[in-house]
Amino acid sequence: MTNAVEIRELHKSFGDLEVLKGIDLDVAQGEAVVLLGSSGSGKSTLLRCINFMEEPTSGRVSLNGDLIGTEQGGRMRYRESDLCQLRTRIGMVFQHFNLFPHKTVLENVMEGQVIVLGRSKAEAKEKAMAQLARVGLEEKAPEYPARLSGGQKQRVAIARALAMDPEVMLFDEVTSALDPELVGEVLKTMRQLAEEGMTMVCVTHEIGFAYHVANKVCFLHQGQILEQGAPQVVLKTPETSRVREFLEGHSLFKLPE
C-alpha cells in the first residue's frame, strides 16, 4: 500500500537559517503521527511543508503516491495552481483557529467547498451540516464565530477542514491557545477522527494524546528527526538523553505503568 505522505531529504531555510536539515518521514494511510520537540526544533515548519504553506528549499513530498511539483534541472518547481489543488486534498487546523469572522459557522464550513471545489450550495450545506454534527456543533451553524468559546471555534475549524474530504489532516498546536478546561473537547474530537481511520499529522505538546492516540511519534531536534517509533517505545524508553530531558520537562504527564 502506498504511504499517505512520503517526505524525502526535506530541507527548509529561512534566509541563512536552516530550520529543517534533511527530513525523511513516512505516514501510512490511516496512521496518526505526532511530531514532538521543543520550540525551534522545526516541527511546525515540517508540518507546514506538507501542504506547502511553506515551500521546501529542497527535497520531495508525495501525497498518496503523487509527487508534488515537477523536477527541473535538479530542483523542484511548484506551480501555484498545483499547490492550491494540493491543499484541497490536505486539511489544516491552526493554533489560533483562523475562522472567518465575517461569516457564520455554516458559511465558514461551506466556503472552501463552494469557492474552491465548486460544489453546489445545497451540496455544500448538506456536507457542512454533517461535519458540524460530527464535531457536535450542528446547533451553532447560524452563529458567528465571535459567539463561540475557544474549544467550539477549534471544532468548527476542524469541521471546515473535514468538509473538503481531505486525504490527510494536519494539526498545528491546536490546543495551545485554549483554556485548560477546553482542551479536552478538542482532543476528544481528534481522537475520534483517529479512531475512524483518518490519516493525521499533529504537532502538539499533549504527550498524553501522543501516547494514547498516535501510532507513531517523531521527536525533532534542531531540524532533524532524533527518534521515531511507536509511542510506547519512544515515550517510555527513549534512547537519547535529549528526549529524556524533554519528557521530564513535561512532568504533568505520568506514563501509565
Binding site: 504553506m53 501555484e80 492550491c84 491543499r87 490536505i90 491552526f94 472567518f100 469572522p101 465575517h102 472552501g112
Partner: peptide, 25 residues
C-alpha cells in the same frame, strides 16, 4: 495573517482569498 493562511489552507488562490476573505473584513 492567519486569515490569509486559513484561506490558503483550504486551497484558495491569493486572488480568491483577497476577494472573499480579506477585503470584506
Amino acid at each position: 495573517k492567519g486569515q490569509w493562511e486559513a484561506a490558503k489552507a483550504i486551497g484558495m488562490t491569493r486572488k480568491a482569498s483577497l476577494r472573499r476573505i480579506i477585503l470584506p473584513q
